[in-house]
Design a protein around this nucleic acid. Sequence first.
DNA 1: TTAAGTGCAAATTATTTGCAGTAAG
DNA 2: CTTACTGCAAATAATTTGCACTTAA
Lengths: 140, 140
Amino acid sequence: MTTTDEHMKRGTDWLSKGGLRPTRQRVALACLLVGDGEHRHVTAESLYSDARDSGESVSLATVYNTLRAFCEAGLMHEVTVDGTKSYFDTNTHDHPHFFWEDTGVLMDAPTDQLEIARLPQAPAGAEIASVDVVIRLRRA
Amino acid sequence: MTTTDEHMKRGTDWLSKGGLRPTRQRVALACLLVGDGEHRHVTAESLYSDARDSGESVSLATVYNTLRAFCEAGLMHEVTVDGTKSYFDTNTHDHPHFFWEDTGVLMDAPTDQLEIARLPQAPAGAEIASVDVVIRLRRA
DNA sequence: TTAAGTGCAAATTATTTGCAGTAAG
DNA sequence: CTTACTGCAAATAATTTGCACTTAA
């Protein structure tokens, strides 16, 4: 099977895992996101321009709506690192991030190299939903 | 000395520590932020309404500009926990936060109860600017 | 006196929504 | 067929900015 076929299969499989209709736009975005099996960190704008670059016709509003739908379906996670824009991550496991302050690039940090020995206990009446760790980087 | 005098002194001292002119508006906001010696987490809107509630006349734009000025002067830190609004913290040390997902309230988490045994090393050419730890809470 | 600070109202940026049209099951 | 999805354009929300006016040093 060709690389493209493989990408396509990964994309559609991923969509059906989330119970989402495989429309042309969604399949295109899904392939861009998980087609090669790697995790990806995107903003609505970056995914939009990736789509246009690869010749796909999708509107920006649909990219926004689709990313929201992917998150609601549990296929992606929103990562909050920069007040001005939202980042979306295809890796839905709780894991640390590197954030380059100068370029605004978000990357995974190696999970196995983070070890939290002790964590503050949740206040009464609360439980911990997730622990976000963002390692902010500056050019040395 | 009265409580108000003390608040006023803390506020003006804090401003001069940042090398900022003690204008009426800045002194008022500074007193609200550090007057009682406690750390505080605010948004522009919340500080604006606190100011109006205490009878101070400040415009919302000035609250925004002032919070920015306080951050640039190193008196406060911006905390990114919610894509839709910016939070500002009077505690400028690197420390963990609790974030209540339902109410949007941000609080300090006890620093001494967090122990990071191992941290991913910064990629080549980078150095760690800060490590943000946000513990997201949901109502149990 | 003069450079910095303030307050509007208008501008900007990221994102969401209403609604008419299109397509998937 | 029927309900969900898409695409625009307009709406919204948080924040910033331009500019005339005020005030601290």
